[in-house]
Structures are given as C-alpha cells and as structure tokens.
C-alpha cells in the first residue's frame, strides 16, 4: 500500500506517494529528479547520500521516506541561488580545487553548510571531525578542509 507523505524539499512543498520501504535517497532521485545525492554504498558508510533534514545531516540511503513525513529536506540543488549564484561554500570549493571527480562533493558541501550554520568559525580539527563520515577518494581531503576553513575566515562573525 502506498502512503502519502508531505515534504518540503529545497523550500518547495511536495506531496508524494511512496511505498513504506522506499528510501529517501531513491524518492529524491527517482520521483523528484534530484540526483545530487548519490548512492555510494547503501549502508551508511561513505556519506555520498548526505542531505539535510530540518538542517541536520542524515544518510538518505538509510532513511525511510515515510519516517521523515512533514520534514524539510535540503539537497545540494537547494543551495543554488535563485539568480544562479553559487553559495559561498561552493565558491570556496571551486577556488581551492576541492572538487575532483565530484561524487562526494554534494555530501561534503552539505556537511560544511551544517557545520558553518552552527559554528561559523570552526577550528581545522572541528572541520575534520565534522566530515569524518564522508569519504573522498580523489582529493586526500586537504583542499576540502582548506575550502571550508576559508569560508569561515572570510565570514564576518
């Protein structure tokens, strides 16, 4: 039996019919066409599927869509400004070469947003701790950590 749920996705209210076993990742990707969140491992070990649920990061590959009925979901597509402008975190990722293959990038950027929303000036240690669950095979993390740090430095307190 399909269930009706309501989600606010990137600021837009969506009414959706989902199976009880449908994962949020698949609902976002297949029903809403938001493919920014990725399948990397399916069991919560890589962080590629990270989205923000009411502002907090979750692993959408391990989250049932019915379980988050009524919530607000932010995906990487939601960071795009209405004028097509980049979020400062995205800009910093580009300037620091923190994007190589780009597959971990949506998850990394959302983790960075979550951290900086809560803690505008994190230490390098806090940044590394915050993204520890998000794997990246290309960059070796340095440019990602630097990119996040740079945003926090240029932001006014």
């Amino acid at each position: 039996m399909k269930k009706q749920i309501a989600l606010t996705v990137n600021g837009v209210k969506r009414e959706l019919l989902v199976n009880p076993q449908d994962l949020l990742l698949n609902v976002l990707r297949e029903q809403l066409g938001l493919t920014g969140a990725k399948y990397g491992c399916g069991i919560g070990e890589c962080g590629s599927c990270t989205v923000l649920l009411d502002g907090e990061p979750i692993l959408s590959c391990m989250t049932l869509a019915v379980a988050v009925n009524g919530s607000e979901v932010t995906t990487i597509e939601g960071l795009l400004g209405s004028d097509g402008s980049l979020h400062p975190i995205q800009e910093s990722f580009l300037e620091h070469g923190a994007v190589q293959c780009g597959f971990c990038t949506p998850g990394m950027i959302l983790m960075a947003k979550n951290l900086l929303d809560k803690n505008p000036h994190p230490s390098e240690e806090e940044i590394r701790e915050h993204i520890r669950g998000n794997l990246c095979r290309c960059t070796g993390y340095t440019q990602i950590v630097q990119a996040i740090k740079e945003v926090s430095l240029t932001r006014k307190a």
């Binding site: 990707r29 297949e30 493919t35 920014g36 969140a37 990725k38 399948y39 995906t75 990487i76 597509e77 960071l79 795009l80 980049l86 995205q90 990722f93 580009l94 300037e95 070469g97 994007v99 293959c101 780009g102 597959f103 990038t105 949506p106 950027i109």
Partner: peptide
C-alpha cells in the same frame, strides 16, 4: 594558472549527470 575547472562548477551545484543519474 590555478584555475577552477569548468566541470567543477556543475559538480559543486550537484548538476553533473553521472551514469546512474540518467534515466
């Protein structure tokens, strides 16, 4: 020069259509 790559823009927006993103 240290120039941000053209493909990195789309990737940072989450708009790059990887193999599994296509239907």
């Amino acid at each position: 020069k240290p120039i941000p790559r053209h493909d990195a823009w789309e990737k940072a927006f989450g708009l790059t259509t990887y193999a599994a993103d296509f239907s």
